[in-house]
Design a protein around this nucleic acid. Sequence first.
RNA 1: CGGGGCAUAGCGCAGUUUGGUAGCGCACCUGGUUUGGGACCAGGGGGUCGGGGGUUCGAAUCCCUCUGCCCCGACCA
Length: 571
Amino acid sequence: MKTSKLLIPTLKETPADAEIRSHQLLVRAGLVKKLSQGVYSYLPLGWKVMKKISDIVREEMNKRDCQEVMLPIIQPADLWKESGRWDVYGKELMRFTDRHDNEYCLGPTHEEVITDVVRSFVNSYKQLPMNLYQIQNKYRDERRPRFGLIRSREFLMKDGYSFDKDEAGLETTYQVMYDGYSAIFDRCGLSYRAVEADSGAIGGSNTHEFMVLAESGEAAIVYCPACDYSANTEKALMDLSHVDTEEELEMEKVLTPDQQTIAEVSEFLGTDPKKSIKALLYRAVYAESEEHVVVFVRGDREANEIKIQNALGAMAVDMDTDEETITNLGIQRGFIGPVGLDNVTVLLDEEITRLKNLVCGANEKDYHLKNVNYGRDFECEHIVDVKEVKAGDLCHKCQAELVEARGTEVGQVFKLGTKYSVSMGATYLDENGKSKPLVMGCYGIGIGRTMQASVEQNNDEQGIIWPKSIAPFEAVVIPAVHKKQEQVDAAERIYQELQEMGVDVLLDDSKERTGVKFANSELIGYPVRITAGKMLGEGKVEIFVRSTKEKIEVPLEEASTKAKEILDTLA
RNA sequence: CGGGGCAUAGCGCAGUUUGGUAGCGCACCUGGUUUGGGACCAGGGGGUCGGGGGUUCGAAUCCCUCUGCCCCGACCA
């Protein structure tokens, strides 16, 4: 391909509306263009990268006996009512009505559709296991689209669904998919971690998220540097084997006028915040009701809302600081404690049951309690894990100190179980002629996210540094001065030779000055650049490696062979 | 959803306070000189100033309204 035949609208200036580096670079390098909030056009180079990632996905999936299909984006409401998600999915689901007043949605995911296909055609254990996938646009009306392709409303996604006879079969399939996903992200040259995560709105029991580590990541994770444990903080466990062994002192009520926050109270009483109990008031929303819940965690900790939501089985929770609510509940802002608090639902983080002689609110204005002990002074029906695990907490597997990081989720593998097969009647006959629900798994990869995550991870001052496997072109050949025929001829020759060697190569035949061509090639980030320029007088050309910035001079005759050699060594 | 900000040429911006009919840089077109690190000279094209309404002799500028886009978001018991 030649640049004269390609639309590559590079920008010198950073676009005003792009916040993070990868978003800026995707726009500046001419890979994508925003049409509307969270809606993007993929330009030739951007789409080429997307296709390379998609092809890697296809290869790894096909290798594992997965079959590619193409399912409809337009999905009837009835199907979603069958699974029960029409009323549950909320505002993220893009809904519309056709001219006959029939309701539809644009698919945010395809469990319903694939289950409909499979229940129609898969009836026997002899057909199992089966694994179907597609690569297609998904639609989600995100609360706040941002960061370019990282959180958009229309996005290309690989989604796959597995069907097994039983849990054991799913376990095997899940592991195959887990390995397949690892292979895909390895081939895309990403640095990532597979973390344990909450199963969220799709439903199901067990899940791993593939997180590309990045400062700008929207998800918080913790991982253990000593063993393989890593988890999203909404799921993360920590070691709780520590138990205070000190003697239980006599509980006393102390005057703490206007001392409301943990910091104030600890300062006032001269105690360690870790030896206190923090109270947080949440409003929990259920399908047909809502209630207020007081959550207690150790004084220096935060609570994790997802964990609270799961502990309550609520659809959503949010913190409530409304004065009127607090008054109506009959609790004392700033002085809430678990002792004698019985007019409201209470969640107690398990950690607190292991600590002795704690400080907490006395449920009376301007008073706190000292030396409070679980079991002796209060009990709680709901002992749960709702704390936000943080750096320095100990790994529950090996007791090493956990580390915090941020990540962008590029893929997820998921055990669905029989949630959809039961609600939608997807069954098969087993060896004994008995009808059983199919056991499902689902597996997703954000193609656009993967592209942008790679950019976020691989860039420098000059621009993008693509891994070879997903670069828009593996190499670019540049005649330094377009009016010098010998340079143009040499570049053309190298271009032809590389093409014959099967290299995905671009010839820059633009009429730009040398500096412009160099700057653009580095902005776009082709792994290798070959320049036919002033050294041609000595019969030499220059090979430049984007990732290492290494420049070598080689004789024209050896240029393509050498370039290919270098490419073969690159990831 | 709540809060804040922005909207003027393809991109980045000035002009708005103090109303007088739109400008700069980049990009683009023509000609010329240049050519190993985002050139220079000369000439040129391109804007219903986000939409609608109002005030006024006159509105990018003042008022009302709608829309779009960007950022932030409970850390407190």
